[in-house]
């Protein structure tokens, strides 16, 4: 097992992935990136040289690599207080101006937050008025998100979160259990467009009233956080909302003054300047 990996080797890996495949991890936060690399080396039983060789010679390996590299740990209704604010304050605020609107889940991972949003909208009775876009860099995880099928053992935590969110029903009413899997009702995801999108290099593809990007930018360094925030700013309508993770902050970013803090505890911001 490789115990440690030095920065020079990490740079060799990111440079190769960038020049060969165009994925840019050069501005990822070093501490977590290093742990992900050590994890890949251990899981695939490789050392730095054999990993480089594999990336270079086996193009099919890149999706597997991205899948392990990106962090795909998420929950439904993570931070229930956040979801209550979305339901009780943010969405009613959007509805004052538009009956129909668009939400972007940037870095949606396995889709638990997309599904949470779909359930929230259904319980508000406005599911057909809202279009959801869910994007991720990792095509394997995007495929999982589209399925809406999760290990049944995760449901205890998800149900607990849902109860604290004060949902109208029981989470059980939205899925059926089969062979240790929780299979969510297909119609929940019918207004969701899933697509591959790279936050680092990707284009602005639409305009939104609400963008959720929770616990994604924590894996970026501040240079990249700044760049991505500019993209979110551009992708939001004026007075649109941006939600980030509870331990993320915009205050260090160059364009922080173009946003207003709507809820500091749950980190919801509003675009107030173009």
């Amino acid at each position: 097992m490789v115990q440690d990996i030095d920065i020079a080797d990490l740079k060799r890996i990111t440079e190769l992935v960038y020049t060969k495949y165009g994925y840019d991890f050069r501005n990822y936060a070093m501490s977590s990136f290093k742990r992900r690399m050590l994890r890949i080396l251990e899981l695939k039983n490789l050392n730095v040289e054999s990993l480089l060789k594999k990336i270079n010679e086996q193009p099919a390996f890149i999706n597997e690599f991205l899948d392990e590299l990106t962090v795909n740990v998420t929950e439904m209704f993570r931070d229930p207080g956040f979801w209550r604010i979305i339901r009780d304050e943010i969405i009613p605020g959007i509805l004052l101006n538009h009956k129909q609107f668009k939400i972007w889940h940037a870095g949606c991972s396995s889709g638990e937050e997309v599904l949470s949003m779909a359930i929230l909208l259904k319980e508000m009775g406005i599911e057909s008025d809202v279009t959801l876009y869910a994007t991720d860099l990792d095509v394997n995880i995007l495929e999982k998100a589209k399925q809406g099928v999760y290990p049944a053992k995760n449901m205890e935590l998800n149900e607990k979160n849902y109860v604290r969110f004060e949902g109208k029903k029981s989470l059980k009413e939205y899925y059926r259990e089969e062979n240790g899997k929780a299979i969510f009702h297909r119609e929940l995801l019918q207004n969701v467009t899933f697509r591959k999108h790279d936050l680092v290099k990707g284009e602005i593809f639409n305009k939104f009233d609400l963008i959720l990007c929770r616990n994604v930018m924590i894996y970026f360094n501040q240079t990249l956080q700044n760049e991505v925030l500019k993209k979110f700013h551009e992708s939001l309508f004026k007075y649109g909302y941006l939600a980030i993770g509870s331990k993320e902050s915009l205050i260090w970013c160059d364009i922080a003054n173009r946003f207003l803090v709507v809820n500091n505890e749950e980190k919801v911001y509003k675009k107030i300047k173009d």
Partner: peptide, 21 residues
């Protein structure tokens, strides 16, 4: 360290949070 996040120290003397396994 906040709940439900891993807390790392980064070169450059700042914190980095993560939601890894």
């Amino acid at each position: 360290a906040p709940s439900n996040y891993h807390m790392s120290i980064e070169l450059g003397n700042h914190f980095a949070m993560s939601t890894e396994e």
